[in-house]
Computed example of a mutant assay.
Amino acid sequence: MQDGLKVCLVASAGGHLSQLLKIAGAWSGHAVCWITTTDVVRASLGDEGNVHVVGECNRQHPLRVLAVFMRCMRILRKERPDVVISTGAAPGCMAVVLGHLGGAKVIWLDSITNVNRLSLSGRLVRPFADLFLVQWPQLARRYRGVEYVGAVI
């Protein structure tokens, strides 16, 4: 049963997606849409809501970054989520900032691979996150506004 809340889930293929799927219970019962980076992920998600593929990008390829940013903007304008949840990376960062600017609540789960400091994407989105979660307790102690509630993997 859905309660009218729309959740946009954003993760790059690979570990970011695996970590996001580990917390699938968090959006159970809500309408969902996905933003991801490859058609392989789209196929693996099946009927898990609308799945949008924006492509891969990183800071070494600024034109790709711009293209992915524009795709994310169109998707979020169309989907109008109430909540954006992401584990990263670059497309997640973009979707979180755009979602926040569009009035959505934002939840960021930084990758478990970041033991000593927040990810670059995490550092960029931290001011926009309503809830910022890390998977190592020492990171929660090191950064203000960051919470540790356990690891997902």
Rank of each mutant, 00 (worst) to 15 (best):
Q2D: 12
D3A: 01
L5Q: 14
K6I: 01
K6M: 07
S12M: 06
G14Y: 04
G14I: 06
G15Q: 05
L17R: 01
S18N: 13
S18T: 14
S18L: 07
Q19Y: 13
L20A: 08
L20I: 00
L21D: 07
L21Q: 14
G25A: 12
G25E: 11
A26M: 09
W27G: 10
A31S: 14
V32N: 00
W34I: 03
W34K: 05
T37R: 04
T38M: 03
V40E: 15
V41T: 15
R42E: 10
A43L: 12
E48C: 12
G49H: 05
N50K: 13
N50Q: 11
V51L: 11
V51I: 13
H52N: 13
H52V: 00
V53N: 04
V54Y: 03
E56A: 12
C57R: 01
C57G: 07
C57E: 07
R59Q: 10
H61S: 11
H61L: 13
V65Q: 02
V65D: 04
L66W: 08
L66F: 06
M70G: 02
M70T: 05
R71S: 09
R71K: 15
I75L: 04
L76I: 09
L76F: 04
P81E: 01
P81C: 04
I85Y: 01
T87R: 09
T87I: 10
T87F: 09
G88Y: 09
A89L: 11
A90Y: 10
C93S: 13
A95D: 02
V96L: 15
L98Y: 07
G99Y: 08
G103W: 01
A104D: 03
K105W: 00
V106P: 05
V106C: 15
S111N: 10
S111T: 10
V115T: 11
N116L: 09
N116H: 14
L118C: 01
S119K: 05
L120W: 06
L120E: 00
S121E: 06
R123T: 03
V125S: 09
R126C: 12
P127K: 13
F128T: 05
A129P: 02
V134G: 06
V134I: 07
Q135D: 06
P137K: 09
L139I: 10
A140L: 08
R141W: 11
Y143P: 09
Y143H: 10
V146C: 02
V146I: 03
V146Q: 01
E147M: 12
Y148R: 06
Y148Q: 08
G150Y: 10
A151R: 14
V152G: 04
V152R: 12
